[in-house]
Design a protein around this nucleic acid. Structure first.
Lengths: 152, 152
DNA sequence: CTAGAACTTAGAGTATACTCTAAGGCAAGA
DNA sequence: TCTTGCCTTAGAGTATACTCTAAGTTCTAG
């Protein structure tokens, strides 16, 4: 059986040894074996749960919740349904996050366009000089978003 | 001229008064006027930069960088190009974030499917009993991702 | 067998972003 | 005028997620 030291795992995964120890302290690495003297003995098969932890982190899940998932993982077959449900919720959460970022991307695209136009005209308030009916719909839509934010 | 108190703004935008004061302290609200006695006098037009701050926050920009943007905003016409470039970078950052979340969504979808199958069979390691050529390509792809993470 | 590298733990320190408390100031209605 | 409620500031406290230090232990190569 080939074992990996914490340093090996850190180098391979890009998670620092400090962080791996911190994760262990927080109860995320219950699956990692130890030698008699207490040294962590990572194995080949430990990379899968480590990858799952990384994915849950990137999905915005806090460490305490990941801990909950890892506890289910350690309990084996009995918790399959709970883990299924957890990933269902995770899917929904990710869909919402993606939608929000797409909305923010739309704003950033608008701002790019707006400032490009402003630069051409050398005036930040360029559109205010146009007659109402000549105002670009993108501006009207952004203003609608601001009104919405303002809570009219 | 109609003024809004910090409480009004908090209620309308959903940003707490504490947070608004914190943003001010961090130099994000330089555009907000004050009465002679020092009370913040928010106006109708202040909601647009507040919305922009909210968008930058949701895009994952740290307060210190937002402060930099607000400084450009206060300087007016001369900084149009810098602000254009800032939103261009923001656009790229958002595209990368969305891509990453989409990758995480794919993992969550895989996990949902995997656990659903595992639940049907009552065995977490169900696929390991199948002959190599019968293993679902989704499993092979996930395992490839894990190998990739492991840094082969 | 010993040097040195890498391992261990406990606990302190850092960064970010709030969140709240304390002490006091201002403004409007009874 | 006084009470009430919202305003102000400074600064302390909280939560999260690391990140590092110190002191000591273990492993490996010469």
């Amino acid at each position: 059986m080939k074992f990996f030291t914490i340093k090996d795992v850190a180098e391979r995964t890009g998670i620092s040894a400090y962080t791996l120890r911190y994760y262990d302290k927080e109860g995320l690495l219950g699956f990692v074996e130890r030698s008699e003297s207490g040294i962590r003995l990572f194995t080949e098969k430990d990379f899968e749960p480590l990858y799952t932890i990384t994915c849950l982190k990137k999905s915005g899940m806090p460490i305490k919740e990941i801990r909950g998932f890892m506890e289910l993982f350690l309990q084996g077959n009995e918790t399959i349904h709970d883990r299924y449900e957890l990933f269902c919720r995770q899917k929904e959460s990710l869909q919402k996050q993606i939608e929000e970022l797409q909305e923010m991307l739309a704003v950033a695209e608008y701002k790019c366009w707006y400032f490009e136009e402003a630069e051409k005209r050398g005036d930040i308030d360029w559109y205010k000089k146009l007659p109402e009916e000549e105002i670009d719909p993108r501006i009207l839509e952004f203003n609608r978003k601001v009104r919405d934010f303002r809570g009219e």
